[in-house]
């Protein structure tokens, strides 16, 4: 197997190497890729969409359709993880509770649906106390990270970033919460249902914007159609359309990242997690 694999790998490597001979040089400004389609993006983006970040403009407008599906891929991945891992119902088995003031741990066998309220906290077998330093430091950092993430989403037009990156960071902040405390804490802030619906809403904002353009009589995802709704000229409408879309992407990506993390880190049981 190993030898066969090596042979295969070497063969395909050789094939790929063989082709590099005819490649244009790295960084050659006169390579076909730099001459054919892309110049128009560089030269026209500003006047057609008024977005300085060409990548954002191309991503969300010229090739906005790709991006919509890219977001859908992420959404799909979230749904797949949920479908695969989530253990629904079956809350039977042993429960552990901790009495908060005293720290005494109680072990309840076969507790179905019963929950101890008040000063008790549901924990796992693997429960470990919070680490004070990590917990406090993260507590302070999380709002900071979140505002930064929102900044990234909002300023995708002018600087690198955009919905996707901001969404990931936003998701990461919630993941950080789950890591530094535990998953249940994070879930209390942003529950499973919320995540699932946010995920769909995010992508829906994207596709819905496109559909709105369609309903307004232009082609799908032609944000210029939004001009009449937003009351601006078509170019600015494009810019705003991109922002709306990016917001959708951000929401979807954030929710999906949280969703995947929740499922993966607790193997679908939504207990204490990593």
């Amino acid at each position: 197997m190993k030898k066969l694999g090596l042979l295969l790998v070497i063969l395909s490597g050789a094939l790929l190497l063989y082709a590099t001979v005819d490649f244009p040089l790295w960084g050659d400004p006169s390579s076909p890729a730099s001459l054919h389609v892309s110049p128009r993006y560089i030269e026209k983006t500003m006047e057609e969409t008024s977005v300085p970040n060409i990548v954002t403009a191309v991503l969300a407008d010229y090739r906005g359709f790709d991006t919509m599906f890219e977001t859908t891929v992420i959404f799909g991945a979230g749904v797949v993880c949920f479908l695969l891992l989530r253990v629904l119902g079956g809350e039977e088995g042993d429960h552990y509770y901790r009495h908060l003031p005293t720290g005494v741990t109680i072990h309840v066998k076969g507790a179905k649906g019963k929950s101890l309220s008040g000063e008790f906290e549901r924990i796992d077998m693997l429960w470990t106390p919070y680490d004070l330093v990590i917990k406090t430091a993260c507590r302070i950092m999380i709002p900071f990270i979140q505002i930064y993430a929102l900044y990234v989403i909002a300023h995708g037009h002018h600087s690198p970033g955009g919905g996707f990156q901001g969404g990931v960071i936003l998701g990461a902040s919630v993941i950080l919460l789950a890591i530094s405390q535990n998953l249940r804490t994070a879930l209390r802030r942003i529950g499973e249902k919320t995540v699932g619906i946010l995920c769909a809403i995010g992508v829906f904002i994207y596709a819905g914007t496109g559909a709105l353009c369609l309903a307004l009589g232009r082609n799908f995802l032609d944000y210029a159609a939004l001009a009449s709704v937003l009351g601006t000229d078509p170019v600015t409408a494009r810019s705003h359309g991109i922002l709306i879309v990016e917001t959708g992407v951000g929401i979807a990506v954030m929710a999906t990242m949280i969703w995947i993390y929740n499922n993966v880190s607790s193997a679908g049981r939504y207990d204490e997690g990593l």
């Binding site: 400004p29 892309s38 993006y41 560089i42 191309v58 991503l59 890219e70």
Partner: peptide
């Protein structure tokens, strides 16, 4: 005027984000 030679080709970047 923005000239194409002054900016890196954005298209592959877009694709790779995806």
């Amino acid at each position: 005027a923005v000239e194409a030679v002054h900016y890196i080709n954005p298209l592959p970047h877009v694709l790779m984000l995806t």
